[in-house]
Amino acid sequence: MSTIGYENWAVDLADVGAIYPFQGLEVPMVIAGVAFWLWWHIIQSRRETAHMEKVMKMGDPEKIAKMLDRY
């Protein structure tokens, strides 16, 4: 048994195509990849929003108000 379809290299390479593991599962792998990508954006965006809210409260409000007024 071999996950790549070959247990040895006693083959004519002209007859060899794909040699990655789990051939036939490409579509589920793509679905998993896309899900990972979208999940990343959602998590990052949520964390960024929370971070912004936290940082907004960290500064000296009086100083910030003065700076905002100045500009």
């Binding site: 060899v16 195509g17 794909a18 990655y20 490409e26 793509v30």
Partner: peptide, 12 residues
Amino acid sequence: TPWSPNMATELS
């Protein structure tokens, strides 16, 4: 396409 063998380890 991302599911094509050409987009992976493919000797041909």
